[in-house]
Design a protein around this nucleic acid. Structure first.
Lengths: 141, 141
DNA sequence: CTGCATCCTCATGGATACTG
DNA sequence: CAGTATCCATGAGGATGCAG
């Protein structure tokens, strides 16, 4: 069984005519990289956590309070994931009770730029998207 | 049962010090919007499909060939999702055999800019991320 | 306070077969 | 050619209880 017979398309390109911003993907590893980061940023909580850490470091339960709806389990898992990817640092103060501070690393901060741009697009265009959805769903009956 | 008791944090902010790009989230709906778009773009195939449609429109099986690994089912579902959100247009030519052309809408094209930036970040920094992962995983034994 | 372990549910996504 | 229908495996994510 050949799960990945071809090395994928070479020179695939994604570009925006207005801004001239271009994404060139030259090989399969780069495709994987893009998908990889997208998966990290696209999960349910990562961006929320990064947003909460943008201005300053936070403790565990501080983050928990500032991110309504997140469960303890998912906060832990999300932080571990971000830490593993080098986007967030974890500093333990061995006191009683223990204190753990989370903060963005330089890499994590550098991710804020493209993520903020995508977020701004989302806020600017969510109306159009929802309108399109309403039209589409209305045509389905 | 109160599934969402609080309207979430007001004035949450995500910014990048180097570029000055800032994302300001003023209310819960905006948080939802960002998450919403992130979910669309963060799924397994959407960006691949958008990439394939960047330069020109494509037919169904053309897309299928150009996106290695995607199943027929997922290509259909991804295209339907993008169409529903107003990002992709679907043009049916009722011939025998039938012909269906997919293309990016203006909205879809405008999404290319922020997505391309995120993609470029991914390609530029995947090495650091993978290095961080190796270190993290190595420390776990 | 900061977690980990367990159990459970449900959505995502893959494989396969069938259809206009 | 361009789908739909069905079944199934996997993992994300929530609830709860326990621990250092």
């Amino acid at each position: 069984m050949e799960t990945a017979p071809r090395p994928a398309q070479e020179g695939t390109l994604l570009s925006d005519r207005n801004t001239g911003v271009t994404l060139e993907v030259h090989d399969a590893p780069q495709c994987t990289a893009v998908n990889d980061i997208l998966a990290r940023v696209g999960d349910k909580w990562s961006v929320r956590v990064v947003m909460a850490l943008t201005d300053d470091s936070r403790r565990f339960n501080q983050l928990r309070r500032e991110i309504p709806g997140i469960s303890q389990r998912m906060l832990t898992r999300t932080l571990r994931g971000l830490e593993r990817d080098g986007l967030v640092s974890r500093a333990v103060t061995p006191s009683v009770p223990p204190r753990v501070d989370y903060a963005l690393t330089a890499l994590g901060k550098s991710l804020c730029d493209p993520v903020a741009r995508l977020g701004n697009w989302a806020i600017a265009n969510i109306g159009k998207v929802e309108a399109a959805r309403a039209v589409y769903d209305g045509e389905q009956d």
